[in-house]
Amino acid sequence: MKSAQCSLLKICKNGSVVFVELELPSPVLTAGQFLLARNQRDILPAVLFSTDKRGQYIFPMNSEFHWEVGDDLLITFPHGHGFTIKPDMRKLLMISQTSSPVRLFSAARQILENGGEAALFSRNLPDQVPPEIEVLSDEQLDEAVLWSDAIIGDAQLHHMDFWQGFQTKYQLSARQSVQILVDTPIACDGTAECGVCAIKTHAGWKQACSDGPVFNLRDLEF
């Protein structure tokens, strides 16, 4: 784990979502990993995820936001396990079940830069979706699941209905990887072992802060 002090360069609000730009020299996270950031007034650090834009991070939707441009932030990174993007993945389907799919976009960026394709299904589209990403309608989802060779998604911990039974409904082949970023409160990097971010898996309880927040759908126990 690394730590650094950096300046908050820009704040952009889009509906219930807040984006921040940090003065960091290089990408510090892989898709789905998070960093912990706080200024001197913060009691708890904020959990930030990267977007597809360099230096831009998305602020948690349910947190109190009081940062200002120019604030010095102490950050630690990287935390958790993100999405596994293999070189042979070419057709990425993103299914977002949260208020913003933007945290999935940095995975799409990787696929696109490798010459692949990416499609998105979300009921909460941001103002700007990268033009290379195809936005899907309800009617197109079934076909896109069959088309894809990798599926990533997100969901809130207590709203996993969509993903429950997803595998059975679509009879996914063994080659189709489904990885879910599970939204849950995170307080630290795992050292507290407090259990507030506990996720039930077939291998027992895991901590989203250190074992996740990205989990394989096949491993999750509903």
């Binding site: 009691i43 708890l44 947190s63 109190e64 409160p185 995170i186 307080a187 407090c194 259990g195 507030v196 506990a198 309880w205």
Partner: peptide, 23 residues
């Protein structure tokens, strides 16, 4: 002890509430 079903971390002015079920 299992994690509480309604485990949560909720900030309030001056602090936060942590509910885990002490798993």
């Amino acid at each position: 002890r299992m994690p509480s079903a309604d485990r949560n971390l909720l900030p309030f002015p001056g602090g936060f509430l942590l509910h885990t079920g002490l798993p």
